[in-house]
Amino acid sequence: MTTPPFPAVSEADLAVLREQLGRPARGVIGVAARCVCGNPTVVATSPRLPDGTPFPTFYYLTHPAATAAMSVLEADHVMRAFNDELAADEDLAVAYAQAHAAYLRDRAEYGEVEEISGISAGGMPTRVKCLHALAGHALAAGPGVNPIGDRALAMSTWSPQRCVCAQPGTSG
């Protein structure tokens, strides 16, 4: 778990990110979570990209196996069940709203961007829209901060405690 401010991103990190994403990473300000082997798993992205585009997804899930696992859950319509649970469980709704506020506080340390003011990611604070974003936040912030991200990670076949990278320093 890494919270702002983040250590400088290394050239090796950028190379791994380029391999993971299949393109150069944009606006990376830090690695917010790493695989047990040291590869980036989640990056923190500037709220305004270098080309001036507002970018609300501060915590961006990059690890190929993690993104694939979240895609499987989304294809299995897990988000529908999470939305139903969010609507029925007041404690969960409060915790999810607190996750939204925490996300916004973290991003605000890197600047306020009017176009995305109050917008976090993944559907927070009232719905579940993108498990990739919520899992990224949960991995970056640590357990107990984003309850839906935590649940998605617990349901997935991928684990941050087990490396599935080809070798240290590559994304495999």
Rank of each mutant, 00 (worst) to 15 (best):
G52Q: 10
P125C: 04
A81C: 03
G52L: 06
G144T: 04
E112F: 12
P160Y: 00
A166W: 00
P147Y: 11
L139H: 03
T45R: 15
G144C: 13
T62P: 01
Y60F: 15
T57R: 05
G142I: 11
G144K: 11
H100R: 13
A102K: 10
A65E: 09
K129C: 04
H77Y: 14
N83L: 10
T62L: 06
E85Q: 11
R127T: 14
V31E: 01
Q161H: 14
E85M: 09
G142R: 11
W158C: 03
M79D: 15
A68E: 10
F82Q: 13
R48F: 15
L92M: 15
T53Q: 12
A138Y: 06
Q98C: 04
A88L: 07
N146F: 11
H100T: 15
D106I: 09
D84Q: 15
A65G: 03
G38Y: 03
R80K: 12
E74H: 07
M79W: 09
N146A: 14
D51K: 12
A138G: 09
Q167S: 06
E90H: 06
A154R: 05
R34H: 01
R127W: 03
P160L: 07
A93D: 13
S159P: 02
A33L: 13
G122R: 09
H63L: 06
D51N: 14
A99I: 07
W158N: 07
D91M: 11
A138T: 08
F55L: 05
P64Q: 05
R107P: 15
Y59L: 05
Y103L: 00
T41N: 00
F55R: 09
R105N: 15
Q167T: 04
M79T: 13
A32V: 02
R80H: 14
T45N: 08
L134Y: 05
R127I: 10
G111S: 12
D106E: 13
A141K: 04
F55H: 11
T170R: 00
R80A: 09
F82W: 10
E109N: 13
R107E: 15
L134S: 00
L49T: 03
T57L: 05
R48H: 14
A121K: 05
G123W: 11
C130Y: 12
A138I: 03
A81F: 05
D84V: 02
M79F: 06
A138R: 02
T67P: 01
C130V: 14
G144A: 09
V113W: 01
D89Q: 11
E85L: 05
A33V: 12
A65H: 08
A81V: 04
V113Y: 01
R80P: 06
Q167F: 06
P47C: 08
F58V: 14
P50F: 08
A121Q: 11
G142V: 10
N39S: 13
A65L: 08
A32G: 02
R162S: 14
G111H: 09
C165G: 05
T41L: 00
Q161E: 15
G111E: 09
G118C: 13
A140L: 13
A141D: 03
A33E: 03
M124A: 10
P54C: 07
I119A: 03
C163L: 00
Y103N: 01
P47Q: 05
